[in-house]
Write a protein that binds this DNA or RNA. Sequence first.
DNA 1: GCCAACGTTGGC
DNA 2: GCCAACGTTGGC
Length: 156
Amino acid sequence: MAYWLMKSEPDEVSIDDALAQDSVAWFGVRNYQARNFMRDQMQPGDGVLFYHSSCAEPGIAGIAEVCSTAYPDHTQFDPASHYYDAKSTQENPRWIMVDVKALRKTRLISLNELRTHPELEEMLVLKKGSRLSITPVTPQEWQFITEQLAGAKHVR
DNA sequence: GCCAACGTTGGC
DNA sequence: GCCAACGTTGGC
Protein backbone atom coordinates (compact mmCIF):
# COMPACT_ATOMS: atom_id res chain seq x y z
CA MET A 1 0.00 0.00 0.00
CA ALA A 2 1.50 3.25 -1.16
CA TYR A 3 0.31 6.84 -1.42
CA TRP A 4 0.54 9.28 -4.30
CA LEU A 5 -0.23 12.82 -5.26
CA MET A 6 -1.58 13.09 -8.79
CA LYS A 7 -2.01 16.39 -10.61
CA SER A 8 -4.93 17.02 -12.90
CA GLU A 9 -5.93 20.20 -14.63
CA PRO A 10 -9.52 20.81 -13.54
CA ASP A 11 -10.28 22.16 -17.02
CA GLU A 12 -9.50 18.67 -18.26
CA VAL A 13 -10.59 16.38 -15.41
CA SER A 14 -11.68 17.96 -12.12
CA ILE A 15 -12.53 16.10 -8.91
CA ASP A 16 -16.20 16.65 -9.77
CA ASP A 17 -15.68 15.12 -13.21
CA ALA A 18 -13.88 12.17 -11.63
CA LEU A 19 -16.64 11.63 -9.05
CA ALA A 20 -19.23 11.52 -11.82
CA GLN A 21 -17.58 8.43 -13.27
CA ASP A 22 -16.82 4.98 -11.87
CA SER A 23 -13.17 5.65 -12.60
CA VAL A 24 -11.04 7.87 -14.78
CA ALA A 25 -8.20 6.77 -17.04
CA TRP A 26 -5.15 8.84 -16.17
CA PHE A 27 -4.15 9.57 -19.76
CA GLY A 28 -1.60 12.07 -20.91
CA VAL A 29 1.38 11.44 -18.65
CA ARG A 30 4.41 12.17 -20.84
CA ASN A 31 7.21 12.16 -18.31
CA TYR A 32 9.36 9.10 -17.77
CA GLN A 33 9.68 9.45 -14.01
CA ALA A 34 5.93 9.74 -13.56
CA ARG A 35 5.39 6.87 -16.00
CA ASN A 36 7.78 4.66 -14.09
CA PHE A 37 5.94 5.26 -10.84
CA MET A 38 2.77 3.97 -12.50
CA ARG A 39 4.51 1.08 -14.21
CA ASP A 40 6.72 -0.12 -11.38
CA GLN A 41 5.10 0.85 -8.11
CA MET A 42 1.43 1.62 -8.32
CA GLN A 43 -0.99 -1.02 -7.14
CA PRO A 44 -4.78 -1.10 -7.01
CA GLY A 45 -5.84 0.24 -3.64
CA ASP A 46 -3.04 2.78 -3.34
CA GLY A 47 -4.21 6.11 -1.92
CA VAL A 48 -4.28 9.20 -4.13
CA LEU A 49 -4.38 12.88 -3.25
CA PHE A 50 -6.27 14.40 -6.17
CA TYR A 51 -4.52 17.69 -6.92
CA HIS A 52 -5.79 20.51 -9.12
CA SER A 53 -2.98 22.20 -11.07
CA SER A 54 -2.69 25.00 -13.61
CA CYS A 55 -5.76 26.74 -12.30
CA ALA A 56 -6.84 29.67 -10.14
CA GLU A 57 -6.61 27.73 -6.88
CA PRO A 58 -4.04 24.95 -7.10
CA GLY A 59 -4.20 22.42 -4.29
CA ILE A 60 -5.56 19.13 -3.02
CA ALA A 61 -9.21 18.82 -3.99
CA GLY A 62 -10.12 15.24 -3.15
CA ILE A 63 -9.23 11.69 -2.21
CA ALA A 64 -9.03 8.86 -4.71
CA GLU A 65 -7.53 5.43 -5.12
CA VAL A 66 -5.69 3.58 -7.82
CA CYS A 67 -7.99 0.93 -9.26
CA SER A 68 -5.99 -0.75 -12.03
CA THR A 69 -2.48 -1.73 -12.91
CA ALA A 70 -0.75 0.08 -15.75
CA TYR A 71 -1.84 -0.39 -19.35
CA PRO A 72 -1.09 1.46 -22.62
CA ASP A 73 -2.35 5.03 -22.94
CA HIS A 74 -4.36 4.98 -26.17
CA THR A 75 -3.99 8.72 -26.77
CA GLN A 76 -0.36 8.19 -27.84
CA PHE A 77 -1.58 6.40 -31.00
CA ASP A 78 -4.14 9.03 -32.01
CA PRO A 79 -2.70 11.61 -34.44
CA ALA A 80 -5.55 13.96 -33.59
CA SER A 81 -4.75 13.87 -29.89
CA HIS A 82 -2.77 16.49 -28.06
CA TYR A 83 -0.93 13.55 -26.51
CA TYR A 84 -0.01 11.84 -29.79
CA ASP A 85 3.53 10.42 -29.91
CA ALA A 86 4.71 9.53 -33.41
CA LYS A 87 7.61 7.55 -32.01
CA SER A 88 5.46 5.16 -30.03
CA THR A 89 4.20 1.91 -31.56
CA GLN A 90 1.38 -0.50 -30.71
CA GLU A 91 3.97 -3.27 -30.39
CA ASN A 92 6.09 -1.25 -28.00
CA PRO A 93 4.01 1.47 -26.36
CA ARG A 94 6.02 4.18 -24.73
CA TRP A 95 3.29 5.61 -22.50
CA ILE A 96 0.97 3.98 -20.02
CA MET A 97 -1.76 4.96 -17.62
CA VAL A 98 -3.73 3.62 -14.69
CA ASP A 99 -7.39 3.94 -13.74
CA VAL A 100 -8.17 6.08 -10.71
CA LYS A 101 -11.39 6.03 -8.72
CA ALA A 102 -12.40 9.25 -7.01
CA LEU A 103 -13.72 8.58 -3.50
CA ARG A 104 -14.69 12.01 -2.23
CA LYS A 105 -14.28 15.70 -2.73
CA THR A 106 -12.61 17.53 0.14
CA ARG A 107 -12.24 21.14 1.08
CA LEU A 108 -9.47 22.59 -1.03
CA ILE A 109 -6.11 22.49 0.73
CA SER A 110 -4.33 25.12 -1.28
CA LEU A 111 -0.72 25.03 -2.24
CA ASN A 112 -0.16 27.98 0.10
CA GLU A 113 -1.77 26.13 3.00
CA LEU A 114 0.34 23.05 2.35
CA ARG A 115 3.44 25.24 2.56
CA THR A 116 2.49 26.48 6.03
CA HIS A 117 2.86 23.03 7.62
CA PRO A 118 6.36 22.07 8.77
CA GLU A 119 5.20 18.43 8.70
CA LEU A 120 4.90 18.70 4.93
CA GLU A 121 8.01 20.63 4.05
CA GLU A 122 9.63 17.58 2.47
CA MET A 123 6.67 16.89 0.18
CA LEU A 124 8.00 16.59 -3.34
CA VAL A 125 5.20 18.66 -4.81
CA LEU A 126 6.28 21.62 -2.65
CA LYS A 127 9.91 21.51 -3.74
CA LYS A 128 11.12 24.41 -5.81
CA GLY A 129 10.90 23.68 -9.51
CA SER A 130 8.91 20.50 -9.00
CA ARG A 131 6.95 19.69 -12.13
CA LEU A 132 6.28 16.00 -11.75
CA SER A 133 2.62 15.23 -12.25
CA ILE A 134 2.80 12.12 -10.07
CA THR A 135 4.78 12.06 -6.84
CA PRO A 136 4.98 9.59 -3.98
CA VAL A 137 3.53 10.68 -0.64
CA THR A 138 4.87 9.22 2.61
CA PRO A 139 2.50 7.49 5.07
CA GLN A 140 3.25 10.31 7.54
CA GLU A 141 2.31 12.98 5.00
CA TRP A 142 -0.83 11.05 4.04
CA GLN A 143 -1.86 10.72 7.67
CA PHE A 144 -1.20 14.37 8.41
CA ILE A 145 -3.22 15.58 5.42
CA THR A 146 -6.17 13.28 6.03
CA GLU A 147 -6.19 14.41 9.68
CA GLN A 148 -6.25 18.03 8.53
CA LEU A 149 -9.26 17.18 6.40
CA ALA A 150 -11.01 15.33 9.21
CA GLY A 151 -10.27 18.10 11.70
CA ALA A 152 -11.72 20.80 9.51
CA LYS A 153 -15.29 19.84 10.22
CA HIS A 154 -14.77 20.45 13.95
CA VAL A 155 -13.11 23.80 13.40
CA ARG A 156 -15.85 25.16 11.18
C1' DG B 1 1.78 36.43 -20.28
C1' DC B 2 6.09 35.78 -17.73
C1' DC B 3 9.69 33.03 -16.44
C1' DA B 4 12.31 29.64 -13.43
C1' DA B 5 13.25 25.04 -13.41
C1' DC B 6 13.95 21.08 -15.54
C1' DG B 7 13.53 17.44 -19.27
C1' DT B 8 14.50 16.10 -24.06
C1' DT B 9 16.71 16.32 -28.46
C1' DG B 10 20.24 16.13 -31.62
C1' DG B 11 24.70 17.75 -33.59
C1' DC B 12 29.25 16.89 -32.84
C1' DG C 1 28.77 11.23 -24.00
C1' DC C 2 28.66 16.33 -23.83
C1' DC C 3 25.96 20.22 -23.90
C1' DA C 4 23.43 24.05 -26.29
C1' DA C 5 19.05 24.80 -27.91
C1' DC C 6 14.59 24.09 -27.37
C1' DG C 7 10.12 22.61 -25.25
C1' DT C 8 7.14 22.01 -21.23
C1' DT C 9 5.27 22.67 -16.68
C1' DG C 10 2.89 25.30 -13.64
C1' DG C 11 2.72 28.97 -10.14
C1' DC C 12 2.19 33.66 -10.15
